[in-house]
């Protein structure tokens, strides 16, 4: 591809104490692309995602969004950006969390409106319109006034998605967004993500839903022990199963679900 990638991750490293969680990860995501990261637990997937919006500070390498280094003024490990600058950078990425993390004191609508009003500085009326539009898009037009505890897990997560996309982010980060859901609620959330993919939303997704990864993403990254073990388009990745033992072992656990 000729276009400059929207997200450029190069030689990324990150340690928690003596435990090196990310060992030189390289990954580019082009605008409009849906890239999925799969792999065993503890492989660094979530940490990778949390570095992209600097919820975790990385130690080495580089993460650039639209050519700007994330979190640091120049280089990793150097001077960090000021809090206001950091906040402005984070507003360019949207994130959806495994445990939803909706604000418990705000209604569904208010959860979506908070960022629109306080970060995007939209007037109340406009923020409300945008919030309702997105809640409608995720199938929750009838729940705008509900508090999080009044919603099911699947509904809460759809509010979480609406809250993130309403900000019109350049890239959406989805961190195991169906892992905390009852099985029968997984699809209502994945359907919303599929729709976003069709609309051309750029997404970096960490998931354990292999079937979903295979048919919804343009590329799949397989991460183990903090580095990329295999990557490619879904069918390219599946073709590597024979030669990559770890990938084979990992996918065999899902074979019942995928065939």
């Amino acid at each position: 591809m000729s276009a400059t990638p929207l997200l450029q991750i190069a030689r990324l490293t990150k340690s928690f104490g003596s435990n090196q969680v990310l060992k030189s990860v390289d990954l580019d995501v082009t605008a409009g692309e849906v890239v999925t990261v799969i792999g065993p637990s503890g492989g660094g997937k979530t940490t990778l995602l949390r570095c992209v919006n600097f919820l975790e500070a990385y130690d080495g390498g580089s993460i650039k969004i639209d050519g700007r280094e994330v979190g640091y003024v120049d280089n990793a490990g150097g001077r960090k950006r000021g809090e206001v600058d950091l906040a402005a950078m984070r507003a360019e990425t949207g994130m959806v969390f495994q445990s939803f993390n909706l604000f418990p004191h705000l209604t569904a609508e208010q959860n979506v409106m908070l960022g629109l009003q306080r970060v995007r500085k939209k007037p109340l009326k406009e923020a409300q319109e945008i919030a309702r539009h997105w809640l409608d898009r995720v199938g929750l037009a009838h729940k705008t006034k509900s508090l999080p505890y009044e919603l099911s897990g699947g509904q809460q997560q759809r509010v979480g998605i609406a809250r993130a996309v309403a900000m019109d982010p350049k890239i959406l980060l989805l961190d195991e967004i169906t892992s905390a859901l009852d099985p029968e609620l997984v699809n209502e959330v994945l359907d919303v993500v599929r729709k976003l993919a069709t609309d051309g939303m750029t997404m970096l997704i960490v998931t354990h839903e292999i079937a979903f990864a295979r048919d919804a993403s343009h590329r799949i990254i397989f991460m183990t022990d903090g580095s990329v073990s295999a990557h490619g388009k879904p069918d390219e990745l599946m073709a590597q199963v024979a030669s990559n033992e770890r990938l084979r072992n990992f996918l065999s656990r899902f074979s019942a679900a995928t065939h």
Binding site: M89, S99, N101, L114
Partner: peptide, 19 residues
């Protein structure tokens, strides 16, 4: 997680405290 959500949407530290 709530503070992470506030950070991720681009709230400044004061806004995270307040809201």
């Amino acid at each position: 997680g709530l503070l992470d959500a506030g950070k991720a949407m681009g709230l400044t530290p004061w806004q995270r405290l307040l809201y």
